[in-house]
Design a protein around this nucleic acid. Sequence first.
DNA 1: TTGACATATTCCGATATCGGAATATGATCG
DNA 2: CGATCATATTCCGATATCGGAATATGTCAA
Lengths: 112, 112
Amino acid sequence: MARTATTADVFNAIAEERRRDILDVLRDGEAGVDQLGRRLHLPQPQVSKHLRVLREVDLVRCRVVGRHRVYRLHAPALRPLHDWVRAYEALWNERLDRLDGLLAELQQEDPR
Amino acid sequence: MARTATTADVFNAIAEERRRDILDVLRDGEAGVDQLGRRLHLPQPQVSKHLRVLREVDLVRCRVVGRHRVYRLHAPALRPLHDWVRAYEALWNERLDRLDGLLAELQQEDPR
DNA sequence: TTGACATATTCCGATATCGGAATATGATCG
DNA sequence: CGATCATATTCCGATATCGGAATATGTCAA
């Protein structure tokens, strides 16, 4: 047993910088494979392969227009990631110290 | 040229589920290597190895206490991740549709 | 139908990654 | 010092991953 598989979930999908680049471009609107390639200076097969990974975790969807494929962002798939980070949001402010102080005060007010 | 290296940035560090597990535990407070191993049912070397990765991206820091090492979360290192996701936050609400409607209204009010 | 174009897939080589076992390091205690 | 405990590192095998090149698929247009 080795290597538990990866690339199959959102966390791994966005771990790759190129894929984040692709998503960033798509944030400004739909785009075809060739357009993405040109903007990111990536050869077409790479783009297609990254898009496949993104498609498999539902981060992008595509629409067929003639012989083109127009990809668009599907942001809701980022939710798990967002929710996970959010749990830590409160923790990186040093303002937590103030919260500690506040809690101490509250305890004094009602020493129970 | 192949495989551009990974595991060296926050995005890759948290791509691994076990490492997220470790961080989740540390969210509740400091912990030693053995404690982490017991709570997560992981053998000690794995824990140490994952902690190393997390340490290298500054997601955890550690303090030496006798022959123990007490690890703690260093949440600010999650910032890049947080910032990245945040740019997408607005995009996954279907409420965007309403925004579109609003914009249309505004355009009618001032049709120039 | 044939050719041109857009995209997807496959094959390849190099390398990173993970888990497991064994071992090394380091510190405390008797 | 020697034993023991806590943690880190190294070595290994299996496999996933990425980039690049070549090729397959699929669609339109003449």
